[in-house]
Amino acid sequence: MRDDLLVLARDLRVKFTTGVNAVNGVDFDLRQREVLCILGESGSGKSVTLRALMRLNPPTKTIMSGTLELGGRDVVQASENEMSDLRGPFVSMIFQEPMTALDPVFTIGRQITETILRHENISRRKARRRALELLELVQIPSAKRRLDAYPHELSGGLRQRAMIAIALSCRPKLLLADEPTTALDASVQIQILLLLREIQQELGMGMIFVTHDLGVAGEVADRIAVMYAGRFIEEGPVADLMRQPLHPYAKGLLGATVHEGSRGKRLTTIPGAPPDLRDLPGGCAFAPRCTEAEGACLAHLPELRTPVPDRAARCIHVDDRPAAFGERLAS
């Protein structure tokens, strides 16, 4: 049962030595071939969570705790060498900014082959052939010539494709994508997105996808997690969650009506400001901005409630008796 589990996170926390509590107890599972989308306001800890999965937050400035397993291997305790063995063949990441995420003084080809050569015992020539195949896979035109190009010689879209090629170079089982299209032109965004989904299905990877775009989430994701102040305050299958969000924050975020063709629709803004991550309130972090808040919300952190199997939310107003949930659905 657990064999197909790519990620297992329980009470995952990330704190920085600056005093910022960026991730404050995240629980989730990710199975093979599954795509999880993380939504949330800026600063809610999405990028830090993704980097934590690969333990890529600055090592000397980060304190990680809780349970985190990638394919059954403990990430919190692993040595740096064990981690670096996982990065590439098991998990890899696509970053938001293709401008700055590639080394400017190395060719694209070199940046792909060095990854392959690091993890696989094959010849330089073979690695280069594989790099070429990868560039073709991500549909970079005249791929052969592009192998010897430097990042600054490519357009933003091509650079992001090259970034994807690097991430795929060791056929990872899990691909993390941190707003991979935000920095690109609208038309290019769709191409990259379609490409990613296609490749994900073709290679059968699990994927965690951070985005601000509801439409993108709706199209790409199997499941959605809504993040607030370093916690998943709601998680569930994409269709259910979008149709009927449970948590007041998720409701606000997704707007009153979400219908088809909502691609390009940005998350609705909610009045008020997110809490100070240095000094989090004891209870529900959203309570100060919540229209449904009451005294009990501030008393202690609401536990995860599961009104129906497969859905969960951190709100005391969510009734976790399946019957009651059904009633509300009907009404």
């Binding site: 980097r51 690969m54 890529l56 060498n81 670096s84 063995d85 996982l86 990065r87 590439g88 063949p89 890899s92 990441m93 970053f95 900014e97 700055t100 995420a101 590639l102 080394d103 400017p104 003084v105 190395f106 060095e114 990854t115 690091r118 993890h119 970034m163 690097i166 170079s169 060791c170």
Partner: peptide
């Protein structure tokens, strides 16, 4: 402090290879 260093670490490169990248830059 640049982003691409995170990318390089994310590819699983070891310290020696990272040093090569830093030196060339």
């Amino acid at each position: 402090s640049q982003d691409f260093m995170t990318t390089l670490r994310g590819k699983g490169l070891r310290r020696l290879m990272l040093t090569v990248h830093v030196m060339k830059n």
